[in-house]
């Protein structure tokens, strides 16, 4: 018993301080992931039955709604295409970095780890589908989180509100940079190291800045809800509400960054950003 206790303690210390045990964790995770699939099965069944029993009326209504939404979207898409070209041309003129285009993979949320304080969700896609640790996850409304563990068939996502999560952001209005940290509360994030005199106000949209190369730039993250400036403190107390539907989404998107216009661009990049992109592509 003493030996096991010491071994356990050793494991806890190693696992919580280093990444040495990640292969072990991923292997065990592959073995236990069927449990999540089985636990989620009843919901798949009820959803399937619900679809079969849905009335013709409601299906027609839904179809109409989706059709009109599609029309709106394709109108926006046309604008978007021309804007993107214009943007690329302007960036080219300025000699700055080209934006990163991304492929996405749809994944379903099949479970949640039953641990208080942690915001870990289980996705039904794993290393078999090319998912990797550190991959960015978004949903229809904004940045969702990142992959922290990958089994063969399932993976674990830490949402942006997890206490140990942080994402580099900038204010869309004026490019003010900051870091949005999770608080463990799924309702708000906190901005770190914002000077008291900084130009930031409730209602400002925060988008991912792409610094550090982990998250692709330009995805909406949160909306500033409250700015507290206490002259006694070194930094402003800024709270923001995450945009992603963290506890309502059923499907999320795994982002695979891809560089649009390779050789020419990487030469222009500062060294550190090139490394980030290389790392993301591997």
């Amino acid at each position: 018993m003493l030996a096991l206790a010491i071994l356990s303690l050793l494991l806890v210390v190693i696992d919580s301080n280093t990444r040495l045990l990640r292969p072990v964790r991923d292997a065990l995770s592959t073995i236990v992931s069927p449990i999540y699939f089985v636990a989620h099965a009843p919901y798949d069944v009820t959803a399937g039955v619900g679809e079969r029993l849905a009335s013709r009326q409601s299906l027609l209504a839904q179809n109409r709604r989706l059709q009109s939404r599609l029309l709106e979207m394709s109108a926006l898409q046309q604008q978007f295409d021309s804007l993107r070209q214009e943007n690329a041309r302007l960036r080219d003129l300025l000699g700055s970095q080209a934006t990163i285009e991304a492929d996405v993979l749809v994944a379903e949320i099949i479970g949640q780890r039953p641990v208080p304080y942690r915001h870990h969700l289980v996705l039904d896609k794993g290393s078999r589908d090319g998912v990797y640790v550190g991959q960015a996850v978004i949903d229809a409304d904004g940045l969702f989180g990142q992959v922290i563990e990958v089994g063969r068939f399932a993976s674990i996502v830490m949402t942006v509100t997890d206490n140990s999560h942080a994402v580099p952001v900038q204010v869309q209005r004026n490019n003010l940079r900051s870091i949005a940290s999770g608080t463990g509360d799924s309702e708000f994030l906190e901005l770190e190291y914002v000077p008291i005199t900084a130009d930031i106000a409730p209602g400002d949209l925060l988008v991912s800045s792409g610094m550090g190369g982990r998250f692709p730039p330009g995805y909406p993250v949160a909306i500033v809800t409250d700015v507290g400036t206490d002259p006694g403190l070194a930094y402003a107390q800024v709270q923001a509400r995450p945009l992603a539907a963290l506890d309502r989404s059923r499907h999320v998107l795994l982002v695979f960054p891809q560089h649009s216009d390779e050789g020419a661009v990487i030469q222009n990049l500062p060294q550190i950003e090139a490394e980030g992109i290389e790392g993301a592509r591997q």
């Binding site: 356990s8 494991l11 806890v12 072990v24 236990v32 780890r113 039953p114 641990v115 870990h120």
Partner: peptide, 23 residues
Amino acid sequence: LFADVLHGEALGVNAFGLAGITY
């Protein structure tokens, strides 16, 4: 150990606990 992975605890926490209970 499997429970640790399933619940996302640091590896060894549940392992220690269940071994202790068994003891």
